[in-house]
Simulated scan of single mutants.
Amino acid sequence: MPESAVPVLTIDGPSGSGKGTISRAVAGELGWHYLDSGALYRAVGVAAGWSDIDLADPAALVRCAFDVEVAFRDAPSGEPRVLINGVDATDELRTETAGAAASAIAAIPEVRAALKDRQRAFRQPPGLVADGRDMGTVIFPDADWKVFLTASAEERAERRYKQLSGKGVSVTLSGLLREILARDARDASRAVAPLRPAEDAVRIDTTGLGIDEVVARVLALVRD
């Protein structure tokens, strides 16, 4: 099957909109591959930190983007894990520090270009569910189905607070809300691939909705 014939569902949206949880569930239901594009950017940020690379040094970050080895594995429990250069860095990738670094790195055109082919390589039979911020607008503009998830900043902060607190991470709800609002502003205003819905994307506001309800709505789009 030629690459262009492999069906793709893109699910974009801001941090905390639920796109990762929904995308993994939908991919599992369909039996398709899953791309967590945000993890690639976070991985570059973490790898850069390990190597003491200045986030203000685009050339060094591009080299890091080309050189870093990122692998996705499922733990025996079924939990998805991410390995950076052979080291399980899943927990570090989930920190707000890694998220902020990913947002800063994603604004660098050369880094985005370096990761573009790597992301497109995930398009393999029988299909792909890709989640991120520019999956439907830049990486897979020819996707068969496009979804853009949103939720209020307050609810997204609450979700993040519960997620991190459950893992024993010390955070405050007010601090997370400030970080989410700041990241939204950065992502929406960057010159390259700003966060915005594709013109042909179906928008779903997940505020107040359960995971199963959102998954059902997305699956209905594909199966219809």
Rank of each mutant, 00 (worst) to 15 (best):
P2K: 13
P2W: 11
S4Q: 14
V6W: 03
V6H: 09
V8E: 12
L9A: 10
T10I: 11
I11W: 04
I11E: 09
D12C: 13
G13F: 05
P14R: 00
S15A: 12
S15Y: 02
S17D: 02
I22R: 00
G28V: 03
E29G: 04
G31W: 09
G31K: 06
W32L: 08
H33E: 04
L35W: 05
R42S: 11
R42M: 09
A43N: 09
V44S: 11
V46S: 07
V46P: 06
A48D: 03
W50Q: 06
S51M: 10
D54E: 11
D54I: 06
L55C: 07
P58A: 06
A59I: 11
A60I: 11
A60L: 09
L61W: 05
A65T: 12
V70Q: 08
F72H: 11
A75I: 00
G78A: 01
P80W: 00
P80E: 01
L83K: 00
I84L: 15
N85H: 09
N85D: 15
V87Q: 11
V87W: 06
T90Y: 04
T90S: 14
D91E: 13
T95S: 14
E96N: 03
E96P: 04
T97F: 03
A98R: 02
A102V: 07
S103W: 09
A106S: 15
I108D: 12
I108L: 15
E110L: 15
A113N: 15
A114E: 07
D117Y: 07
Q119C: 15
R120W: 10
R120M: 13
F122M: 08
F122W: 12
R123V: 14
R123Q: 14
G127A: 09
A130E: 12
D131C: 09
D131T: 06
G132H: 13
R133H: 14
D134I: 09
D134T: 06
M135Y: 14
M135T: 15
T137D: 03
D144L: 08
D144W: 01
L149Q: 03
T150F: 03
T150G: 04
A151L: 06
A151S: 11
S152K: 05
A157S: 10
Y161V: 05
Y161L: 11
G166V: 03
S174V: 13
L177P: 07
L181D: 02
A185D: 13
R186G: 15
S189I: 12
R190P: 15
P194C: 13
P194V: 13
P197T: 00
G208R: 09
G210Y: 10
I211D: 07
V214I: 04
A216D: 05
A216L: 06
A216H: 08
R217L: 03
L219T: 13
A220C: 02
L221P: 12
V222G: 06
V222W: 10
D224M: 01
